[in-house]
Write a protein that binds this DNA or RNA. Structure first.
Lengths: 106, 106
DNA sequence: CTGAATCCTTGTCGATACTG
DNA sequence: CAGTATCGACAAGGATTCAG
């Protein structure tokens, strides 16, 4: 047993690519912990993000299957974003980081 | 209770800053899961990293208290790096990511 | 309201050369 | 062996403008 699964196939770099960068973490956390949001809602709730960056990051999250995009055929336009099952299942990762933070504070 | 701790004080952005980027994850994982390493060992084990980048990233990890640097007064020089308690306590975070990866594969 | 296209700034990465 | 210093390449981030 000179063998350690968690080291051999570590998904950390992949996850960091998927949710790293300046905005994806905040966007995903909103959708995971607060629920479905319209584009304009996210724009207001993700502090400091611009229209351009929000669109780019949402597209990337969607491409990685973490976020779902639902377009309503209405005027004015309405688009709702939500976390997919894959996105929601990242919750334990956030919880592990939260726990690390709490234990570290002592 | 319209209140959610994990959302209010989320350490994720902090952790991503501390261990994000192209090399820190691989460096830290080596020190956490394989143990103490000399500079030259890391240079060989972290695939593709250059001397310059390895030094920079190790300095950053050290500044954040995740890695310890021990210099031996010898000739030729010898420097050993190891994960600190704070660094080692990130293990559950890696494990959570690993679990996410396994469950997602189905 | 939601979003695409353009252009510019900033920061990260890394090759190379040099040192105790 | 284990660094430091410099400088260029490139990607990420962001302001602005236009559009369905």
């Amino acid at each position: 047993m000179g063998h350690n699964d968690i080291d051999d196939i570590c998904p950390a770099p992949i996850i960091f690519t998927m949710i790293g960068g300046k905005w994806k973490l905040a966007i995903l956390k909103t959708l995971i912990f607060k629920g479905t949001r319209r584009f304009g809602d996210l724009r207001r709730e993700v502090d400091g993000v611009t229209q351009t960056m929000l669109t780019k990051q949402l597209r990337a999250l969607e491409a990685d299957g973490l976020v779902h995009r639902k377009v309503f055929a209405e005027v004015p336009p309405r688009v709702e974003y939500s976390a997919t099952e894959d996105g929601l299942s990242l919750r334990p990762v956030f919880e592990a980081m939260h726990l690390w933070w709490l234990e570290r504070g002592l």
